[in-house]
Design a protein around this nucleic acid. Sequence first.
DNA 1: GTCCATGTTCTTTA
DNA 2: CTAAAGAACATGGA
Length: 273
Amino acid sequence: MPELPEVQTIVTGLRPRLLGRPISDVRLLRRDIFHPPDLELPTLLAGRRIADVSRRGKKIIITLDNAQRFYIHLGMTGRLTLEASETPLLPHTHLILSLQPNQELRFRDPRRFGGIWWISGDCQADTNLGPEALDLKPADLSARLSKTRRAIKSALLDQSLIAGLGNIYADEALFAAGIHPTKRADRITRDQAAVLTRAIKQVLKRAIRHNGSTLRDYRDADGNSGDFQRLHRVYDRKGRPCHNCRTPIQRIVLTGRSTHFCPACQPRSAARR
DNA sequence: GTCCATGTTCTTTA
DNA sequence: CTAAAGAACATGGA
């Protein structure tokens, strides 16, 4: 569920409230969400202070006062919330970090596609990750897209090509750029790549300003919903009129993912005259 | 019961 | 061999 804007919203909310605080107790309620399995997360965290909270792609990176780091990936249904200790635990809470005097950082994830990874050696925060979507250079995007024959939509979801986009924002960015989702990635022109670069950044920045999109599961660190779903142009709008031209939005399935677009505003081939 | 879901990784296919 | 499609993972809601 959480893509770059949702993860950024969580990080922005947590950082000022976590910096410098000591972790007084650690409860790992499900061991199998922590990797690698041979390390003892409670031992690694006990008594440490939080030195930084940051983001890389869709990963939330926590740095400790001894410079050791781990990251949390929220998968589809993960939540990372800062709550009063007396707040009842929701089901599927897998990790609790106690922060004095009476708060807890809680990781909850019903589907368990998410998890927590200790960073060291072969597990780095940016292993197999492309450049940050917000830092993308048009020439870089163009060069990367030229190496694959996949549909552009599928390419945008590949985190090793660009880090941060997911199913919502890939669809929204392609609409903003006027590009059909099934267009072959290696047939995107340099001009189109420049337009797409701008569209990606614009969509992501707007979504961050609106605290992300809540369709079903996403909540920020305080349990609040995002707002950007109200501004979606195509995602989850099958059959509803395009905001530009009133043509009904289409939904197709592309490499297993639902894909939404306006058949008029995103023509299969660029209009020529 | 069925289908669908904001993600990633492993397996199979072409 | 490799790129890309498909299946799998696990849970819950419509």
